[in-house]
């Protein structure tokens, strides 16, 4: 016949505590008093105690003799397993991955920032403002170049096709400072 605790709703944890010797002295005495008048709790306590005794008869089991050797081989495999490049920093492999990650993430982030700034610097558009002298010089230069170009076109137009001597003349004149 199944023995249940229907009549003692709070007895579940008390019985366990009583069997395992985990009740406070007052609770222990109170439960013994209760069992004296409760055949259900008395029966359950006896059966569960016997069950516990049975479970404790199970023999202990031992791992195989070569446990350590096989473990060492498996750990060597773990060590050899490639890790992401950004985790391969100069920390002892024994204390990877947590600490490596803690170091690697800020390092990689900083490297990215530096690389971005460098790229931005190299590929920047010049924004230096020209001074008054530079502006005047640039203006004069533009005028001279424009005149030279016009003269070149005029000279080229009067020559036959395929004659490129005008270009040479202009260039040599510019180099010597003369005019033509």
């Amino acid at each position: 016949m199944e023995t249940k605790l229907n009549t003692c709703p709070n007895a579940e944890q008390t019985i366990v505590g009583y069997i395992d010797g985990n009740l406070a002295t007052a609770d222990h005495i109170a439960f013994e008093r209760h069992m004296a008048s409760c055949s259900v709790c008395r029966t359950i306590e006896r059966e569960l105690r016997m069950t516990q005794t049975l479970v404790r008869t199970l023999s202990s089991a031992e791992p195989r003799q070569d446990f350590e050797a096989r473990l060492a081989a498996r750990i060597a495999d773990v060590k050899l397993k490639p890790s992401p490049w950004w985790m391969r920093f100069a920390l002892p492999s024994y204390v990877k991955p947590a600490r490596r990650t803690h170091v690697a993430i800020p390092v990689v982030a900083m490297a990215s920032v530096v690389a971005s700034l460098g790229f931005a610097y190299v590929s920047r558009v010049p924004t230096v403002k020209a001074g008054a002298v530079q502006t005047a010089a640039a203006s004069d230069e533009t005028t001279v170049l424009s005149e030279l170009a016009n003269q070149h076109h005029a000279a080229s137009a009067s020559q036959s096709l395929g004659d490129t001597s005008g270009v040479v003349v202009v260039a040599s004149d510019m180099a010597t400072g003369g005019s033509w």
């Binding site: 199944e2 579940e12 944890q13 019985i15 366990v16 505590g17 569960l48 069950t51 049975l54 479970v55």
Partner: peptide
Amino acid sequence: KSRIFNARVALRDSL
């Protein structure tokens, strides 16, 4: 405690 109790009850029933 509940788990130990329930486990022992189930074991008791089996054994």
